[in-house]
Design a protein around this nucleic acid. Structure first.
Length: 503
RNA sequence: GGUCCCAUCGUCUAGCGGUCUAGGACGUCGCCCUUUCACGGCGAAAACACGGGUUCGAUUCCCGUUGGGAUCACCA
């Protein structure tokens, strides 16, 4: 490999290149980065990559940087950049320093390419796209590996066609092999003969991703490259470039991609959505998404609920699984339910306000907010997401007469005659309108009528909540207050009478 | 197809030669709590892909088979 051998001593071996020896990594200098392409939203897989980078950096007291890989001008949009920043902010993955925009550094990338050209580690290639396509077709037909054959690698400058477009390719080593001690995948070796001379600078003078990523990681001082394992193969070619520049070799950690419930690549159907969809459409809490993503492909004994501080203390790349993990919406909902129950009531009220307003068709009053706040401890035990939570709270705020669902309608129809009316008159006489007093009256009524409490409570529940299931009935009536409760019972009585008149 | 990687209950995982009659969580089922639904508690069914080795002994180490994944652009 000669001159292309990296000078970094921790990365050298007799006849091949070795990268990523974790034992010599200086923890205090750790710099990680999350480098998404702004071609869409921040999807769930990207969020997990960001999380691992964030956790690793914080665990080592290092830096976590954000870089936008926007060299593909046709596919990069400002809206996508905004979506990524928005998602990172929501998840509270705070990055250090300014965001690096890769496109803005194109001149620096080109500079490196020309430097390599001058010192003989790169060359001009005049092969046309048609020529290359034909080459690949022939290789495919012959069942040969498809790669550039190096036809311009050693040709003298005098062979160059005049005024013809050319790309700059790296003159990569062809002998020996390269080994990466990947922090997740373990030791991986690839023969240099398997790699071809990759394009560094396109014929229009713009840098390729391969060039840009290596230059930027170097210039940003990145010590640990943690990314999806779809980049594992790229790492070997990037190593050749790093070697040609004599730059220090970063440690690598290639984490497996997330798969859908059916084991296939994550598609829009099963979860490859932007994190904003988890927030807005599915009503997830950011800490729940974070906890779920952490446990997906990583474990710490039997621990399931792991908060941020604990995650930072425990996280290590060595425990990341090497195989792809399937995304399980049910488990996410379960984790979300846990965090919902643990969440502050006032925070939940403000989080569901938009949904409640939409369901109610009107703005909330101060009294509405007070009712929501007071009923939140019971409400949140019954919800797995913010949508459920909002939907479950609606009956409190509806204006009379409240709508009855099927279960409630049936309960009213089958209620023992007179039971609701008697309950109403008993409740009307209550001086101290509390859950305890309401329950006492209901129990006395049931006892007097020789029926189970459920015979009394269920029709009442239907009348007061419009549903056959709800939080504790007497607490609900206490929260609603005397006038509203009695009014709702009157409404139900009216419905029952109308039914009787029909029959 | 070439190269590389992976393989424990349906899913996420614990396990790093004997502690495994393989542990936890989600999901499923049953019971308890109970005015309903939840929450909570208790319990059940459910896995080491297969075949060879190595070893006194393999879920754990090695090889092969099968299965799965990643990647092979002037895209990132």
């Amino acid at each position: 490999m000669g001159a292309s051998q990296p000078t970094d001593t921790r990365a050298s071996q007799p006849s091949n290149t070795r990268a990523s020896d974790p034992t010599t990594t200086r923890a205090s200098n750790v710099v990680t980065r999350f480098a998404p392409s702004p071609t869409g939203f921040l999807h769930i897989g990207g969020a997990r990559t960001a999380l691992f980078n964030y956790l690793f950096a914080r665990h080592h007291g290092g830096q976590f940087r954000l870089r936008i890989e926007d060299t593909d001008r046709a596919r990069s949009t400002d809206a996508a950049i905004a979506a990524i920043v928005d998602g990172m902010t929501w998840l509270d993955f705070e990055w250090d320093g300014e965001i690096v925009h890769q496109f803005a550094r194109a001149a620096r990338h080109a500079e490196v390419a020309h430097q390599l050209l001058e010192n003989g580690h790169a060359y001009r290639c005049y092969a046309t796209p048609e020529e290359l396509t034909a080459l690949r077709d022939a290789q495919r037909a012959a069942k040969q590996p498809m790669r550039y054959d190096g036809r311009w690698r050693d040709r003298p400058a005098s062979d160059a066609p005049e005024a013809a477009p050319f790309v700059i390719r790296l003159k990569a080593p062809r002998e020996d092999s390269v080994t990466i001690d990947d922090l997740v995948q373990g030791s991986v070796t690839v023969a240099n003969a398997e790699l071809d001379d990759m394009v560094l600078l396109r014929s229009d003078g713009t840098p390729t991703y391969m060039l840009a990523v290596v230059v930027d990681d170097h210039d940003m001082g990145v010590t640990h490259v943690i990314r999806g394992d779809d980049h594992l193969n790229n790492a070997f070619r990037q190593l050749a470039l790093i070697g040609a520049m004599n730059w220090p070799v970063p440690a690598y950690a290639h984490i497996p991609l997330i798969h859908g419930a059916d084991g296939a690549k994550l598609s829009k159907r099963h979860g490859a959505l932007g994190v904003d969809a988890y927030r807005d459409e599915m009503g997830m809490l950011p800490e729940a998404v974070e906890n779920y993503l952490l446990r997906l492909g990583w474990g710490h004994g039997d621990d399931e609920i792991i908060a941020r501080a604990q995650a930072i203390a425990w996280f290590d790349l060595g425990a990341v699984g090497r195989g792809p993990a399937r995304f399980d919406m049910k488990k996410l909902e379960s984790v979300n339910g846990h965090y919902l129950r643990a969440a502050d009531d006032a925070r939940l009220v403000s989080l569901i306000e938009g949904r409640v307003v939409a369901g109610l068709g009107r703005e909330l009053t101060a009294k509405d907010r007070d009712i929501l706040q007071r009923s939140m401890p019971e409400l949140k035990k019954r919800a797995a997401n913010l949508n459920d939570l909002a939907a479950g709270s609606l009956f409190f705020l509806r204006t009379r007469p409240i709508p009855m669902d099927d279960g409630a309608t049936k309960l009213l129809a089958s209620a023992a005659p007179g039971i609701l009316a008697e309950a109403r008159s008993r409740f009307a006489g209550i001086i101290d309108w509390t859950a305890a007093e309401l329950e006492e009256q209901a129990r006395a009524l049931a006892e007097g009528a020789a029926v189970k409490l459920g015979q009394v409570a269920q029709p009442l529940r239907a009348a007061v909540t419009g549903s056959s299931q709800s939080p504790g009935l007497f607490e609900v009536m206490a929260t609603l207050g005397r006038d509203e409760t009695l009014g709702r019972i009157d409404d139900a009585l009216t419905i029952i009478q109308a039914k009787r008149a029909d029959a």
